[in-house]
Simulated assay, not measured.
Amino acid sequence: MVYFIDFILLGIVYVFLIRKWKKVKNGKSVALFSIMYFYMVLVLYVTVMPFTIPFSGTNDWFMETANFMPFRDLRLKYDGAFREIYLNILMMFPFGLLFPLIKQKGFVKTVFATFLFSFFIESYQLLSVWWNGVQMRIFDVTDLITNTLGGALGYIAYKIFRAMVRK
């Protein structure tokens, strides 16, 4: 039921955004925007949903759940560390591919937008723990790095595909 409410809210946001987007863009752009929006909703589903509402008390130990050491899990040889890195790169790869298609931005702006999206996710995870929300979510600087790398690789793939299409 909680997810249902989250998806309803995200659907309402989509309707308002698509109405605005249709006024200024053509059909191809609206389709790309829609694909990007639904992709981002799937990322939010995997990373931060259900959305936490800060009505309960606060968790004073929330910083204990955060990891500020890059690649700590890999250095400590935790099970699944390589898998997590790979999945984070793979998760943000489409962002780096779709963002320049929609916004016609270069490498630096695409990578920065990927970083901001990832930073939002990681910060929300940290805040949700502070709000006594979902305890299994943690802020992890490695996720921030690997997500951003995924966006950069997505942009490189975009440039390669674009060059191939133009030939």
Rank of each mutant, 00 (worst) to 15 (best):
L44A: 10
D6S: 05
T142S: 13
F4I: 03
Y3V: 02
G80C: 11
S123M: 06
S29T: 04
V48M: 00
G80K: 10
I121E: 05
V15F: 11
Q135V: 02
Q135R: 06
R19Q: 15
V165G: 12
L87K: 03
L144H: 06
A113I: 00
D60T: 13
G80T: 10
Y39W: 03
W131G: 09
S118C: 02
F71Y: 12
M69A: 14
W130K: 09
S34G: 12
Y37W: 13
I18M: 14
Y86P: 03
F112W: 00
K103I: 02
D73P: 09
F107L: 15
K20V: 11
F82Q: 11
F99V: 10
R166W: 02
Y124E: 07
R19G: 15
L74K: 04
V41W: 01
Y86F: 15
F33S: 09
V30A: 13
V41Q: 03
G106T: 09
I35W: 02
I8T: 05
W61C: 10
G133H: 00
N88F: 00
V46M: 06
R72Q: 13
R19M: 12
L116V: 05
L126Y: 08
Y124A: 04
P94M: 05
T47G: 12
L32G: 04
T146I: 00
F51Q: 07
K167V: 08
A152I: 07
N147V: 02
L90A: 08
R162W: 06
I138F: 08
G96N: 05
Q104G: 06
V13C: 13
L10E: 07
V46F: 03
V134N: 15
G150C: 04
K28H: 05
S56V: 01
Y45C: 04
A81S: 15
N26C: 08
F112V: 09
I145T: 09
L10Q: 06
V108H: 13
F139M: 07
M136S: 14
Q135P: 06
S128N: 05
F120I: 07
F71E: 00
T114L: 03
L98S: 05
I156K: 15
F120S: 05
L101D: 06
S118Q: 00
Y78N: 15
A66S: 06
L10K: 01
K167N: 15
V141S: 10
S128K: 00
Y155E: 14
L127Q: 03
A152V: 07
P94H: 05
T142K: 03
G80H: 07
K28T: 02
F62P: 08
F93H: 02
W131L: 03
R19Y: 04
T146M: 09
S118E: 00
D140Q: 11
V46H: 05
V141N: 07
I5N: 10
M91D: 05
T142Y: 01
G151W: 00
G80Q: 15
I18H: 08
T58Q: 12
K105C: 06
L44G: 09
F16W: 09
P94E: 03
N88C: 01
N59Y: 01
M69I: 14
F33A: 04
E84N: 15
N26P: 04
I12D: 06
S34C: 06
V30I: 15
F82H: 14
L74H: 10
V41M: 03
F161K: 07
F68I: 14
K103N: 13
V2Q: 11
K109V: 04
N88M: 00
T114Q: 01
K103G: 08
V108C: 14
